[in-house]
């Protein structure tokens, strides 16, 4: 994790009276997989497009790979847009090679690279197929391969997992993991927390155009108080007086959640239970998930994302 390859400073984008992105600052170090999380309409796509200089911010500055203009370094960037589409009549390899040549690769090298990528990610048999004959998932994989065919240093994937079945989602995760292994920087947006959980070195959560969190997944989890879940027939009131315990929250099923103070050790609760003769049927200590963090931060807006 060295110097940032992407730096957004106080970036704002307004359309008339509507503010799509509000004072966003972000720093992405090199070689990092960075998640961009937020509910629909949070401003993820707008932010990514501004990073690519497809649209210009209303105010603020963006530095990408040391350049104030993404166009100047466009040969070193790969991009998968949110809405996926390909030229229907072109063959899979030809599309990958075409986008690679637009990024500056030679024709022959681009073609060889296209076949190599298709083979590596299980699409060898479809290399000569016209893209209109491919399934949605296959088409999407072809498009990702087209985005990374020129071996870019910086890859932007907008909702790379949407519309993929679980098997293909795994392939997509492999692609991202491979990129990281090769020292590339990846920034991807999603509203499915499981992918972020598995892949991200860092993540940013935004909603309504504002950044709510920016940091590592561990840091994200720490924003939530940790809880211990216990079930017992005995009185648990004595636990309340422990210095580690912030609150006791009775649950609908008769159990109880013990909310710990920041930095407290769950072990103390267990010891206290023994000391007070509380017979435990269940004692479960879970790390909060990114999903919990997301729901907590985004609040009511997260509802939509949760059901997807």
């Amino acid at each position: 994790m060295t110097a940032p390859v992407l730096e957004l400073r106080n970036v704002t984008k307004t359309y008339g009276t509507f503010t799509a992105v509000d004072d966003l600052s972000l720093s992405v170090p090199a070689g990092c997989v960075h998640g961009f999380l937020g509910p629909n309409g949070a401003g993820k796509t707008t932010s990514l497009r501004m990073i690519l200089e497809i649209i210009r911010p209303t105010s603020g500055t963006i530095t990408l790979l040391g350049s104030p203009s993404a166009l100047a370094v466009r040969g070193r960037i790969g991009y998968l847009p949110e809405e996926k589409g390909l030229y229907k009549k072109m063959k899979a390899w030809a599309i990958i090679a075409y986008f690679a040549t637009l990024k500056g690769m030679g024709h022959r090298a681009a073609k060889a690279r296209a076949f190599e990528l298709l083979e590596r990610y299980g699409l060898k048999d479809f290399a000569e197929a016209k893209t209109e004959a491919l399934s949605k998932g296959m088409g999407q994989k072809v498009q990702v391969l087209a985005a990374i065919a020129h071996d870019p240093e910086f890859v932007i994937l907008d909702e790379p997992f949407s519309g993929l079945d679980p098997v293909n989602q795994t392939v997509m995760e492999d692609i991202i993991t491979d990129l990281r292994k090769r020292g590339r920087t990846v920034i991807f947006s999603t509203h499915v927390m499981a992918h972020a959980e598995r892949l991200c070195d860092r993540l940013a959560i935004i909603a309504k155009g504002r950044k709510l969190f920016d940091g590592t997944p561990a840091e994200a989890r720490e924003t939530l108080p940790r809880r211990v879940r216990i079930q017992t027939a005995d009185d648990i009131a004595p636990l309340r007086s422990l210095p580690e315990v912030a609150d006791l929250l009775p649950m609908a099923d008769g159990g109880c959640e013990v909310e710990l103070r920041h930095g407290a050790d769950a072990q103390a609760v267990l010891q206290a239970c023994f000391a007070h003769g509380i017979r435990l049927r269940t004692f479960r200590f879970d790390e909060p998930t990114l999903h919990d963090v997301f729901v907590k931060l985004v609040g009511p807006d997260a509802k939509e994302a949760m059901y997807r």
Binding site: L52, I54, I77, Y79, L86, Y87, F99, L102, A146
Partner: peptide, 17 residues
């Protein structure tokens, strides 16, 4: 319209002006 409706245009515009 093909490029516009299937959003290939975005990929193109990330590569060319």
């Amino acid at each position: 319209i093909e490029e516009r409706s299937n959003r290939i245009i975005e990929v193109l515009l990330s590569s060319v002006t």
